[in-house]
């Protein structure tokens, strides 16, 4: 499997500091975007802690081959072992930020969103908390692999609000989940099989506030090289006023072996089908 990736963060035009943090670790196949919140630099600290903790925890657990039950908190049986590492990392980072926020007055109210992508040759894991997103671009289509945890997104899911109403709602930045505001956090985690030429985009809401899913799809189709795609997306956001910090990571996959069968495998199926129908007919004749 070949991975190409790139990530950029930009403070934007209206904010003084950058509360976003990200990491790109091709060796681990681990990509993270975090969008912090809270005054007095607390937001910047929260997002950086989250990225650090998850990177370190994941690295350590996978290097030692730690079992499901030795990770932080009860394992989720619907997930793979790697999925449980990600879940454990998120829980751990949440607890650390939560405790820090309780301890220091300056840190009170600090928190962060989180979008995590793990890529392995046999499995892709997407996990998120809050409104930072993960997109999959495959076969000319774009799909969200994350679920926004915001008041408006929940109302859209309940059918109480349309997507259009949500985009213009004054409540669109009010989150229902983040890391740091309560003792425990429940992320959304999805697992899929990777395909050749799969492309992923992770981003903070600085991007998605100003760009629709379709625009994202068009730009990523026009610009296959991850570094240039990130640059173009951020430049576009800056052109549109960049009221918030913006972070984008682009990951593209190629040369995945063992995905769909090659010529000989297909030939095998054809022979198999032919054999089967001959058998069937033969049975009928015998009867």
């Amino acid at each position: 499997m070949q991975i190409k990736s790139s990530g950029i963060t930009d403070v934007g035009l209206k904010r003084e500091g950058n509360e976003d943090a990200f990491s790109v670790e091709d060796a681990l196949g681990l990509y993270i975007v975090a969008d912090g919140m809270g005054g007095h630099l607390a937001g910047e600290i929260a997002s950086r802690i989250a990225v650090e903790v998850i990177n370190k925890a994941f690295h350590k657990w996978s290097a030692q081959g730690v079992g499901e039950r030795e990770i932080f908190g009860a394992p989720d049986t619907s997930l793979s072992l790697k999925g449980n590492y990600i879940l454990g990392g998120i829980r751990l980072a949440n607890r650390i930020i939560y405790e820090l926020a309780l301890e220091k007055k300056d840190f009170h109210g600090m928190g962060t969103t989180m979008a995590i992508l793990l890529v392995t040759p046999s499995l892709v894991i997407a996990a998120n908390v809050g409104d930072s997103r993960i997109y999959l671009v495959r076969d000319g289509e774009i799909e969200r692999l994350s679920r926004d945890h915001s008041v408006v997104a929940e109302q859209v899911e309940l059918g109480m609000m349309t997507e259009e109403e949500a985009e213009s709602s004054p409540l669109r930045h009010v989150l229902t989940r983040n890391l740091g505001s309560s003792e425990d956090v429940v992320p959304d985690i999805f697992e899929i099989e990777p395909n050749n030429d799969d492309r992923f985009i992770l981003c903070s809401d600085g991007l998605t506030d100003l760009m629709s899913d379709d625009e994202l799809l068009n730009m990523s189709e026009e610009e296959p090289e991850p570094g240039r795609l990130c640059r173009r997306l951020v430049d576009e956001v800056l052109d549109r006023g960049a009221h918030d910090n913006t972070t984008v990571i682009s990951v593209s996959l190629s040369d995945i072996v063992n995905s769909r069968g090659g010529f000989f495998q297909r030939l095998g199926y054809m022979l198999g089908d032919a054999l089967f129908s001959i058998q069937k007919r033969a049975r009928k004749i015998i009867r």
Binding site: D35, M37, G109, G111, T113, G130, D131, V151, P170, L171, H173, V174, L175, T176, N178, S181, S182, D205, H243, D244
Partner: peptide
């Protein structure tokens, strides 16, 4: 109003 432009957490347990 400008406060609402910032991302924030619904602070309720």
């Amino acid at each position: 109003k400008s406060d609402l432009d910032k991302t924030m957490m619904l602070d309720t347990a």
